[in-house]
Amino acid sequence: MSDVTVEAVADAMYAMVKECHGKRQLKAIDLTKAMAERFGDACDKPLGKEAIRLLIEDERCTYSYIGGSYIVLTPEK
């Protein structure tokens, strides 16, 4: 089992958010579940959480709220 870095998970999550943009709204759990499938046991819940935090903090993604909370691309300023 290879080690997976937070950055790699965050990049994969970002790609997924980009791909789903305008088609499907993703919740945090959708991202962590997809990453667990993709990276296997190496990507556990805490790592998934950390990756989301990274995505939000470097402003590649942002939270949106329409009835529920979703993770979306940060709109162009």
């Binding site: 942002t62 939270y63 949106s64 709220y65 979306v72």
Partner: peptide
């Protein structure tokens, strides 16, 4: 109006647009 994409950096809660 309904909602809006606002918040403080790093959080997904605490601010309602």
């Amino acid at each position: 109006k309904h909602g809006g994409l606002v918040g403080v950096k790093g959080y997904g809660a605490g601010v309602i647009g």
